[in-house]
Amino acid sequence: MSAQPAKNIAIELREIRKTFGQQEVLQGINLKVKEGKTTVIVGGSGQGKSVIIKHMLGLIRPDSGEIQVYGQNILTMSNKEKSEVRMNFGVLFQGGALFDSLTVYDNIALPLRERTKLKEEQIRYRVESKLEMLDMPGVGSKYPAQLSGGMKKRVGLARALMLDPKVLFLDEPTTGLDVKRSKEIYRLFASIQAKLSFTAVIVSHDAPKIFKLADYIALIADGKIQGCLTPEAFQLSDNSYIKNFVQETMGDIYRG
């Protein structure tokens, strides 16, 4: 029997191990995502950051370990129960993962049409208000292929927010965007979270800028979480991996 998790933990990973082919990508991941806070997972490319998110979403099964979402083990759930848990999730995928056969409007309306019994007028109202909230009025009739990278991410974000998720996952929200656009995404994220106060898990290698959004930063290296700390504590950590990471991304702050 596992101990009851503390009330304010949204998602907890315990000793997650996962091997792809010959390579053990995750070698015992332990991570707690606190409710209402933003946890940022950083680390080098190919270290398994996205794999961690996919485990939390239940898209990948670990070889061993336990995943708890609001105290429930999702590995022992039926598909139906998993679907219900996922109703609380909003996900922005790396490439946006917009359905390219649907217009932007239909993309954003899809979760409402499929998962709720709202009337078409109510859907229209909610989609348009989300588009406005994300500074994109009037793009509804375009197709994803006609949008720029930054726009796609914003549309993806709008779709992720459509069902008012309790937990929002962002997989590399700024990869492939220029500095100005990525700042825009960050600003947008901060303002939405202030309004909606959801739990957020962000995977990014855009350190140190991402630190501004974070309540907690977790570094993954060598298949393990090297520490999940507040930004201040992270920058002062004694862990050699974290020290190296901070020096690489922020410059040498230890030597005057």
């Binding site: 898209l59 109703m87 996900v91 993962a97 899809l110 979760p111 499929e114 779709r159």
Partner: peptide, 16 residues
């Protein structure tokens, strides 16, 4: 759709 994570997106939106 599988390649560009659209199927994962469907699953995450709890759409079968």
């Amino acid at each position: 759709m599988r390649n560009t994570e659209q199927i994962d997106a469907l699953t995450c939106m709890a759409i079968n």
